[in-house]
Design a binder for these strands. Sequence first.
DNA 1: AAATAAATTTAGGACTTCCGAAATCTCGAC
DNA 2: GTCGAGATTTCGGAAGTCCTAAATTTATTT
Lengths: 229, 229
Amino acid sequence: MESRAPEAYTAPVENYLKVIYEIERASGAAATTDIAQRLEIAPASVSGMVRRLADQGLLEHERYRGVKLTEEGRRVALRTIRRHRVIESYLTRALGYPWDLVHDEAERLEHAASDELIDRMAAAIGEPTVDPHGAPIPTREGEIDEQSHIALTDLEPGEHGRVVRVSDDDAARLRYLGELGLRPGAAVVLIECAPYGGPVTVRVGAGAKSAECHIGPALAADVRVERTE
Amino acid sequence: MESRAPEAYTAPVENYLKVIYEIERASGAAATTDIAQRLEIAPASVSGMVRRLADQGLLEHERYRGVKLTEEGRRVALRTIRRHRVIESYLTRALGYPWDLVHDEAERLEHAASDELIDRMAAAIGEPTVDPHGAPIPTREGEIDEQSHIALTDLEPGEHGRVVRVSDDDAARLRYLGELGLRPGAAVVLIECAPYGGPVTVRVGAGAKSAECHIGPALAADVRVERTE
DNA sequence: AAATAAATTTAGGACTTCCGAAATCTCGAC
DNA sequence: GTCGAGATTTCGGAAGTCCTAAATTTATTT
């Protein structure tokens, strides 16, 4: 296997660390089942890999309790996330990629690109701090500015907000959000949240080109916003 | 393993096919030992892989006689070569990569990039027909224009030529050639070829900024030129 | 024609990453 | 406290890619 640098972790290892970082951030510790679900592999496979990663000092594992990354594991995870998001940003801004396709491409390139390439890409598009979906890009040094944001559905009816981030892992869903204008930066007003899983009504955009749309509550909860005014 | 497309060959498979294509072009058929040497792996490993590739219909193997690619094998090889060379060209022209570093980067990215990405890169830099080292880039359809060229050392003393291609697989050597100005397009005049493995004297460049240099015969033979005037 | 050298293949292992099936553990309900 | 559902781990196995060492085949030399 050609290594990319003195630092050579395999693609699966980088993927494990990446999703563990994200689960840990969301829930404190990453359970085997959650990891398996995110990676779309069998839980049994995760058990085996987790043991090896623990042996390598990338994470700590309490049996039946889940895993936590070590400093080194976190560093590798953040480096991988930086790669992913820089690549997504570059493909969008420099090569005109539609925003729903960049995720899959980045998912593969992130394991092959050198630090040199990532830095050149970042420089070429002006050192962006967030990717096309609004996710923050860790710095070369591994610092990440995890913004706090609320779900679109957390707004009160009538309240104004601005989209800061959407989840990027489903191309079709992203395309749909794009058609509705629900991209990072878009101004929104929550009109109504129908109860019992009913549709969420939102006004998207400002002024003359604004439009109302109705989306499901699960989708709406994945659109992260900040309050404005 | 995430696949890149309906067409999913592993990185090692693509590398085998690529070097087999090149050896076959140079010598008619690719011997196990040659393949092993180019891939820097043990000959025994090649035997095993060759059998699998033959089973998959990518090449034909006559025991103890070497291998030849099938139509399908050739197609995959040329697609991989196109990827490699488009990536090299893009890194050089769009991201300012020094020409001695692009080979290693492309060697990894060629297995991860989608056809879509390759096409966008090619379009972004104006559909180049040769890479930074002068090697021809196969078309999307798998056609390649293998130019005929002679070694620098095939020129007669006093004869003029133009560099069309240099070999790209050794970064340090490439950097050296670059310092001497021996890049594709450079005008050269062969001054003298000392006998018995002696140095080759060449005038590089035209007019006032031309300079004479002395290089070893092995290096000189790897600088491919065409006659001018 | 036999001996030697070189190229090639086979045999037996190692490592990584995945799987399904079976065993084990945890924790809340009763 | 026990039970069972659900989560987790262990076990045995497969595929891919590589290795070294030993056996075999081909080519060359004498």
